[in-house]
Simulated scan of single mutants.
Amino acid sequence: MDDWPRGYTTEDDPLWKVQNSLLPDSSSSDYRAGPDGWPDYINHECKDSLLTIFIFTQAQLAHNTWESLYKKQLYSKKYKLSVQDLERINWQVIYK
């Protein structure tokens, strides 16, 4: 990803500190406790039982406030996934 400065880390950007985030070419696993973990969270805590994932470029984050990103819907990609969608893709969301 050419628009990410060399050596950029999540520590360089306060927005990243309060959101779950991943840098380009990285992956993560997030565990949700309980008998049904993620399915329970998605079905009971997420609006319309859909997990929403936003993809932002570093430039979008660097040049906009969180409020501006949210109100103007400035993002590169938005996923809205049900438990069934996630099961179909083996719980892996890949963005390239």
Score class of each variant (00 low, 15 high):
Asp2Met: 13
Asp3Gly: 07
Asp3Phe: 07
Trp4Gly: 00
Trp4His: 09
Trp4Leu: 15
Gly7Met: 11
Tyr8His: 06
Tyr8Met: 15
Thr10Lys: 14
Glu11Asn: 14
Asp12Gly: 08
Asp13Lys: 06
Leu15Thr: 10
Trp16Glu: 14
Lys17Ser: 15
Val18Met: 14
Val18Ala: 09
Asn20Tyr: 11
Asn20Ser: 07
Asn20Glu: 06
Asn20Gly: 08
Leu22Gln: 10
Pro24Gln: 02
Asp25Ile: 01
Asp25Cys: 08
Asp25Ala: 06
Ser26Asn: 13
Ser26Gln: 13
Ser27Asp: 12
Ser28Glu: 08
Ser29Phe: 01
Ser29Arg: 04
Tyr31Gly: 04
Ala33Gln: 10
Ala33Ile: 02
Ala33Val: 04
Ala33Met: 10
Pro35Tyr: 03
Pro35Gln: 06
Asp36Met: 12
Asp36Gln: 14
Gly37Asn: 09
Gly37His: 03
Trp38Gln: 06
Pro39Asp: 05
Tyr41Glu: 11
Ile42Ser: 05
Ile42Gly: 06
Ile42Glu: 04
Lys47Pro: 02
Leu50Gln: 15
Leu50Pro: 01
Leu51Thr: 04
Phe54Thr: 13
Phe54Trp: 13
Ile55Arg: 06
Gln58Gly: 03
Gln58Glu: 15
Ala59Val: 13
Ala59Ser: 15
Gln60Pro: 07
Gln60His: 09
Leu61Glu: 07
Ala62Val: 03
Ala62Met: 08
Ala62Glu: 11
His63Met: 05
Thr65Lys: 00
Glu67Ala: 10
Ser68Gln: 13
Leu69Val: 03
Leu69Ile: 07
Tyr70Val: 04
Lys71His: 09
Lys72Ile: 00
Gln73Pro: 00
Gln73Arg: 06
Gln73Thr: 01
Gln73Met: 05
Leu74Ala: 01
Tyr75Asp: 00
Ser76Ile: 00
Ser76Met: 01
Lys77Glu: 12
Lys78Tyr: 01
Tyr79His: 03
Lys80Leu: 00
Lys80Asp: 05
Leu81Phe: 02
Ser82Val: 00
Ser82Asn: 03
Val83Tyr: 01
Asp85Met: 02
Ile89Ala: 06
Asn90Gln: 14
Asn90Thr: 02
Asn90Phe: 07
Trp91Pro: 09
Trp91Arg: 03
Trp91Cys: 02
Trp91Ala: 07
Gln92Arg: 15
Val93Leu: 12
Val93Gln: 06
Val93Cys: 09
Tyr95Lys: 05
Lys96Leu: 08
